[in-house]
């Protein structure tokens, strides 16, 4: 139970980082970005590609490569259909995610790569009689720190204030002189960067394989929905609910982990249709 919970918290801190970006992109531009998961996967792949030459600097470098790719993707495929229904961007990004997954398999093969954590983070620590890998704790703390920094940025900076205004009313923000088009693209790029960073940071824990994006995107969507659409603190809490439901449920009845997860999510949505804080949008 304890080990499962701790693993849940570790997975939750990664999920918080990926679902935060998903929630931001949805909240600002009403874009349901199904391709967010493959950006996470690309982060993992670029990380293992750059690792031999750059060492652990690859963890910073991989997101830096993914960001311009994501911005190009936004410009070419999402921006032209931004004013249409959400279903259009969902379909386009759904297609894109399969195309990119296919490209990954074509370029880098279908096998799973697990890399060792850096030497200083190898080994385990004793937590209440359980041996726990140091790297897991470090990676979890780092992704929580980054998530926290994103919150601080949004809550306390001028750009963050603009982001919150756009989330409330995109058109009105534009009419006040905010270049929403530019901000939406930047946020898309930023969110992609955080997803890619999570993919790289998680590589020594969750391994790197072509389908890794598909798993995380479903969990991230669940977190966003649980948090209340577009509500960022709710999304972070949602991420931990999803991760804990999955790891604790899976710990007892492994083959039922997904069923337990969806049951928990469905139950919460029945009780709190506007998310855990009751502040998000319904649609």
């Amino acid at each position: 139970m304890f080990v499962n919970s701790l693993n849940g918290i570790i997975y939750g801190s990664f999920l918080a980082l990926t679902s935060l970006g998903l929630s931001l992109v949805f909240g600002l531009g009403r874009v349901v970005n199904f391709a967010h998961g493959v950006l996470y996967a690309l982060g993992g792949y670029f990380f293992i590609i750059f690792l031999p030459s750059l060492g652990w600097g690859a963890m910073v470098f991989a997101p830096l490569v993914v960001v311009p790719l994501a911005i190009a993707m936004e410009w070419l495929t999402i921006a032209p259909i931004r004013n249409r229904d959400e279903i259009y961007t969902l379909l386009v990004t759904f297609g894109l995610s399969f195309m990119i997954t296919g490209a990954i398999e074509y370029l880098w093969g279908t096998e799973t790569t697990l890399i060792k954590p850096p030497v200083i983070f190898q080994g385990t620590v004793d937590i209440l009689g359980n041996q726990f890998p140091v790297y897991r704790l470090f990676a979890s703390a780092l992704s929580l720190l980054v998530t926290g920094l994103v919150f601080v940025f949004i809550q306390f900076t001028a750009v963050g204030l603009k982001i919150r205004a756009i989330t409330d009313d995109n058109e009105m923000a534009e009419a006040l002189g905010i270049n929403t088009r530019w901000l939406l693209t930047s946020i898309f790029g930023g969110a992609a960067g955080f997803a890619a960073f999570a993919g790289a940071l998680g590589a020594p824990i969750f391994s790197v394989e072509p389908e890794m994006g598909m798993g995380i995107i479903i969990d991230s969507f669940l977190a966003v929905i649980l948090g209340g659409l577009g509500h960022l603190p709710g999304t972070a809490v949602g991420a931990f609910i999803v991760a804990l439901a999955k790891s604790i449920g899976g710990g007892y009845i492994a083959e039922w982990a997904i069923a337990v997860l969806f049951l928990v999510v469905a139950a919460i949505m029945v009780l709190r249709p506007r998310g855990v804080f009751g502040r998000g949008r319904i649609a």
Partner: peptide, 24 residues
């Protein structure tokens, strides 16, 4: 606008500040 459209989840002061920051 006709339907007012304040930024509902921002404070009164933030509503005004964001407009000030957006204006040259």
């Amino acid at each position: 606008p006709e339907d007012r459209r304040p930024f509902g989840s921002l404070s009164v002061e933030e509503n005004i500040r964001v407009a000030a920051q957006a204006s040259p």
